[in-house]
Design a protein around this nucleic acid. Sequence first.
RNA 1: GGAGGGAUGGCCGAGCGGUUGAUGGCGACGGUCUUGAAAACCGUUUUCGCGCAAGCGAACGUGGGUUCGAAUCCCACUCCCUCCGCCA
Length: 413
Amino acid sequence: MLDIRLIREDRAAVERAMVSRGMPNALAPVVEADERYRSLLRESEDLRAQHNQASKELGRSKEKPQHLLDELRLMGERSAELQRQTREAKDTLDALLLELPNLPHPSVPQGADAADNVVVRMVGTPPAFDFAPLPHWEIGERLDIIDFARGVKLSGSRFYVLKGLGARLQRALIAFMLDLHTKSHGYREVYLPFMLHRECMVGSGNLPKFADNLYHDAEEDYWFVPTAEVPLTNLHRDEILDGASLPLYYAAYTPCFRREKMAAGKDTRGIKRGHQFDKVELYKYVRPEDSDAELDRLVADAEDVLRQLGLHYRVVQLCTGDLGFASCKTFDLEVWAPGSNEWLEVSSCSNCWDFQARRANVRFRPDPNAKPQLPHTLNGSGLALPRVLIAVLENYQQPDGSVLVPEVLSRYM
RNA sequence: GGAGGGAUGGCCGAGCGGUUGAUGGCGACGGUCUUGAAAACCGUUUUCGCGCAAGCGAACGUGGGUUCGAAUCCCACUCCCUCCGCCA
């Protein structure tokens, strides 16, 4: 959520930011709702102050004449009506504010969509094959470690079963990543609920706008995590953190559930895009002045996984038009998959500034006597499992049809 | 699922329907004293909104209701605790 005061004070700048994200004219209704709310609020509070004052005097005096009681009752009724209108105006304003995306960071390249994203760097080299490398769905079926048919039997399209060493490889990758981030990069591992209250989805920015990409249980109103970013954003909801405890680094493994309603036939081959996938997520709460540097470190921490696995990848900076809703600046990591012959997004590292902290009401006190302020939050995959699994299978495949396991995983396999 | 008890400020814990945003204690912070510290003593100490400001408004689990006036009365819900039942 954007700070309404920023919109009041520098509307033109926010307007430009919205335009750069492909959302012209987003602000006018917000400004209008804000003005209506504030004028109602003033009127309502004035009347209530008057009512409070009169009521207090009545309480102090011994006599309680009927005409005064009647007068006060009427005033109370008018006041209640004004309060109702004010609350309505506030709800309208909040609903509009919740639909506005974050502002882009000034350093983000301008652009309309993914085509304008910028490759920042390439790392490593693609493997050389003296045979035609197979895509992972063929490798997986030949080795009987990925079972597509039975996944579909159980749950339909976009589901699969990992078997034997396939399941084992995924588990090894999860353990490797968690160990790396907790032992070498300073993150604290957390195990989280996979079903959350509705308000968590609002806090992270997934609701109200992106409900159609989420699964939820209507009976209990539980929402399934689409990423650990959601519970991690809400971990400190409605808290005032001790400034001395910042920065906080969290690493969490969770499954992720996504409806992926897009095009029915898109990316259905293999395990690249499923309704359920595993991910290790990295998350930070930091002081505002540190968030730029913290994003760079977050990207480096995620990259370290790919580097240690010996995989060829590139770092892509998203342009203004392709930024996620809550993000002000994002770098994607894309790993090379020689069998599928494409770059696969395995991580998306974002600085969200105070956008999520404001929604989730997370604050910190810089000093024991200072006023609370909003921290910045950052999140990044470290990394998404199925696509790393794909990359390992396709990059490490051998002429005889077997697959070598990267050195760093040997102790986990 | 059944029965009972509870929810107040960072924590503990008061609170006849009317200067109670809320007594008191602990903790924390500032000060006095001390070579320094402890002890003692003095003081400060919730958060949010509107407003240039003075100031005003809101919040005692949540939502409603009664009343001129609700932390205090009524209703519903949520969560926690104890006991019983069931159970990975």
